[in-house]
Design a protein around this nucleic acid. Sequence first.
DNA 1: GATTGATCATAC
DNA 2: GTATGATCAATC
Length: 224
Amino acid sequence: MQPPPLPANIQALQTNARSLVGRSVGELARELNQQPPDQPTRAKGWTGRLIEIALGAPADAAAGPDLAHLGIELKSLPLDRSGKPKESTWVCMAPMDGRLPPLWRDSPPWHKLCHVLWIPIQAEPSIPFLDRRIGVPFLWRPDTEEEAELAADYAAILELIAHGELAHLDARVGKALQVRPKAADGSQTTLSWDGDGCLTTTRPRGFYLRRGFTTRLLDRQFAR
DNA sequence: GATTGATCATAC
DNA sequence: GTATGATCAATC
């Protein structure tokens, strides 16, 4: 199997994604000539990138959906032994300097989350890394209720950032969408504003979907 | 066991 | 340095 080209449309993408069901990480790596990491624990995003390669997504560092021409974001969804998401889901960076648009529908997380192709994958520690298998993919658009929840969380987060109340912006804010540190280490900084309107610095952070939220997506999709 | 804050690898 | 892909590991 060669790395497929950029899928021309959603149908092609879905066909490709369905062809991965039941394949193992090791098989996929071999077929795509990707060298598996020696220490999987030190290659956190490797499987996600492997799936992107398998689906023809370009590996660029630009912000925005993976498949910009289709408006679709690819997300691997690692599952634990009970079939629930193992972790929260990375969404995108959260600018701390006031560049976040006031309207949810203009926001970076909305543009990432408005149309997602989820690729479930086994991730329980008891399964050797290369033996983990890919599950049934599903396209998702937030329904009214889900979007309202995300938008409300976004508004709360935005307000804290806009008012320079970063001390109160921790991972406990937000029912579905939360903000957590996102950096190579604790020394990283980015620009922000304090409560008096003075420029300062803070730790870089990003938006994440809580585990409970993605659990509900799975439940809805597979009606379990 | 779930959550929060910290961190790892890679591309550009 | 900033973005992407996330999971690790300490703590609650």
